[in-house]
C-alpha cells in the first residue's frame, strides 16, 4: 500500500470518528457559537468540509490521473 493511500485511510478514519462517538462527544456542546452555528452543528459542517478536501487532495495527487494527463498532453503536442 502506498504512503499516499495510508495517509488517506488514516485521515478518513479520523474524520469518521469525528462524526460519531468518541471524537464528536468532545465537541458536542453549544458554545462557542461559530459563524452563527452552535459548536455541535459547526463541528459536523467542519467534518463534511474536511472529508471533501481530503478526497479532493487524493484525487489531485493520483499518480494514474497525472500520468493519463501527461499522456493526453503528449498526444496533443
Amino acid at each position: 500500500m502506498s504512503r499516499r493511500k495510508k495517509i488517506f485511510l488514516t485521515l478518513l478514519f479520523v474524520i469518521q470518528l469525528g462524526v460519531i462517538w468518541p471524537v464528536y462527544a468532545l465537541f458536542d456542546g453549544i458554545y462557542p457559537i461559530i459563524l452563527g452555528l452552535p459548536l455541535s452543528f459547526a463541528w459536523i459542517v467542519a467534518m463534511l468540509l474536511s472529508a471533501f478536501f481530503l478526497l479532493l487532495w487524493y484525487y489531485l495527487s493520483d499518480p494514474a490521473h497525472k500520468e493519463s494527463q501527461t499522456k493526453s498532453e503528449r498526444v496533443q503536442s
Binding site: 465537541f27 453549544i30 452563527g36 452555528l37 452552535p38 455541535s40 452543528f41 463541528w43
Partner: peptide
C-alpha cells in the same frame, strides 16, 4: 434577525438541550 441570534436565543431558553449533540 439572523441565524446566530436565533441559535443564541435557543441556547438561552429551556430548549437549549436540543442543541447538545446528539
Amino acid at each position: 434577525g439572523g441565524v446566530g441570534e436565533m441559535f443564541t436565543q435557543i441556547a438561552q431558553s429551556d430548549m437549549s438541550v436540543m442543541l447538545q449533540a446528539p
